[in-house]
Simulated assay, not measured.
Amino acid sequence: MTIDDRLETRPSDRELLRLLSGGTPEPSFDHLIRMSDDCGMFEHARGPVPKRWHGYCVDDVTRALIVICREPEPAPELVRLAEIYLAFLLHAQDRERGFHNRLGYDRQWHDEPETGEWWGRGVWALGTAASRGPTPWIRAVALERFADGVKLRSTIGHAMAFAALGAAEVADVLPDHQGARELLADAVTVIGRGGSDPAWPWPEPRLEYADAALPEAIIAAGQYLGDEAILRDGLALLDWLLSTATRDGHLSPTPAGGWGLGQPRPGFHQQAIEPAAYADACARAFLVTGNRRWLTGVRMSVDWFLGDNDSRIPMIDDVTGGCFDGLAEDSRNPNQGAESTLCLISTLQLARWLDRIPVDSDPATT
C-alpha cells in the first residue's frame, strides 16, 4: 500500500465520533495562509502542499477575499491578504469585457477577459469587500470597481447569480445604489423563476454545482427590490432543492457530474462547494423570513464537513486547517485545494453564527 492509498483510506469511526461529539470547530485560516503568497492564492495542492505550477484563478481569490471580509475582527495578517486578493482582482478586471480568470505562476494571464462565472464571483467579492471590507481603503476601492463590474451582464445563470450576491451586499449598505438594484433585477430574468412542473421546477434541465446560489440570488432580489412574488419564488426553489439533497436526515448534495431527474442518489464525487452554497442560501432564507426551519439546512451543511454525510467520513483536516477535495463512497480525496478549504471556512463562519442564535426563539411561519 502506498502513502496515497493510506491517505485515501476511509477514516475510522473513532475519528467521526470525535468530530461529531466535540462541537463545531472555529474557522482556521492556517491553510488559506499556506496556500497564499504576495500575488494571490494558489488553486491546487498536493495534500496540503501548494501546486505552484498550476497558478492562480479569480474563482478562488474571490472566495478568499469574501471569507476574510466576513470575519468580524480579522488578524493583521488576514487584512494584508485581503489587500493582496483585492489587488489581484483589480489586475484581473477589464472594465469593458469582464475578468480574466487564470494567471500563471509566471504572472501571465492565460485567457481573455469575459463575463463567465468568474466575472460573477469577481463582482460578488467586490460587493462583499465594499460592504464588509476590514479597512476604509479596501471598502472604497472595492465599491469603485464594483460599480464598473455591475455595468456588464452575462447570459449564464450561475454568473448572474454570483454577481447578484455581490449586488445584495452593496444594496444592504447602499439601498439606492442603482447599479446593484438593476443587476439584481436582471439576474432574476437570466436565472428564471422556476417552472410549473412540481417534479422539476428547476429553471435548468440538470442540477450542476453550487446550485443553491441561484435561489439565494432570487431571494436576495426579492428582499432588496421589495418584491414579495420574487421572494416567494426563490424560497420555493430553495425548498425544492434542499428536499432533493436531503437523505436520511443529512445533506446528500449533487455530485460533481451533475444530477438529473430519475438518476440514483446518492451520487459521488461530492465537493465542498455544495454544502457551502446550501449554508449561504439557507442562512439568507432564515434572515429574510425568520423561519427557523431554514436553520436545519445550515446545520446539515456544517455537519456534512464533520462527517454526517453519505459516506460517514469527516472532511476536515484539523492539523492543517484544510478541507479534503472530495468525498467518494468509501474515501476522501487527500488533496486540500483552495476551493474546498475556502468553502469549509465560509461554512464554519456560518456555524459560529448559528451557535449564537437563541434556541428558544419562536419560529416564524413565512
Rank of each mutant, 00 (worst) to 15 (best):
A213S: 12
D355K: 08
A125H: 07
V58E: 07
T365H: 11
S21E: 15
C69M: 08
N309F: 00
F324D: 07
P48K: 00
Q336A: 00
S21T: 14
P11H: 03
A161E: 06
C69R: 07
D60I: 11
A229Y: 08
G257L: 04
F146V: 08
W53N: 06
G192I: 10
E208M: 11
S301C: 03
E144P: 04
T289Q: 05
P11Y: 06
R293D: 13
C323P: 05
A279H: 06
R34Q: 12
T115F: 05
V288D: 09
L152H: 12
V141D: 08
R95I: 06
D362N: 05
A147S: 14
A277W: 05
G192H: 09
T9Y: 10
C282L: 02
V141I: 15
L327P: 05
A129C: 07
L103F: 12
Y224F: 14
H44D: 14
P48A: 06
P253W: 04
R34G: 04
A92K: 12
D4L: 10
G179C: 07
L183F: 00
G267V: 08
G179D: 10
V190P: 03
R46N: 06
C57T: 10
P72W: 04
S252P: 01
I219G: 00
K151L: 15
W202G: 02
G321C: 10
D317K: 09
E329A: 15
T155Y: 07
R139E: 09
A281F: 01
D310N: 15
P175G: 10
A220L: 06
Q223G: 01
E114W: 07
A168C: 09
W119V: 13
D318H: 03
R332S: 11
A217D: 05
G179E: 12
W137V: 09
R95A: 15
A276P: 02
D325F: 05
T9F: 12
N335R: 13
V170M: 09
F99R: 13
A220E: 02
R97S: 13
R299V: 04
F29C: 03
T9H: 13
P11S: 05
D317I: 13
A245V: 02
D37F: 00
V79K: 02
I33D: 10
R356D: 04
L238G: 07
M41T: 14
G260S: 14
E96S: 14
R153D: 11
L183R: 01
R247V: 01
E71M: 12
R312V: 02
D211V: 05
A167S: 15
A212V: 02
L103N: 12
D362G: 01
E77F: 01
T366D: 15
T289E: 04
R352K: 11
D106L: 10
R70S: 08
L225W: 00
R97V: 08
Y278R: 06
P264K: 04
A283H: 09
F99W: 06
F146A: 10
R352F: 01
P203V: 12
F146I: 11
C323A: 15
R80E: 14
S346V: 13
P48W: 03
L306D: 01
G257I: 02
G47M: 04
G157M: 03
G297H: 10
D197T: 03
A245Q: 15
G297Y: 11
A147R: 15
R292C: 06
W259Q: 08
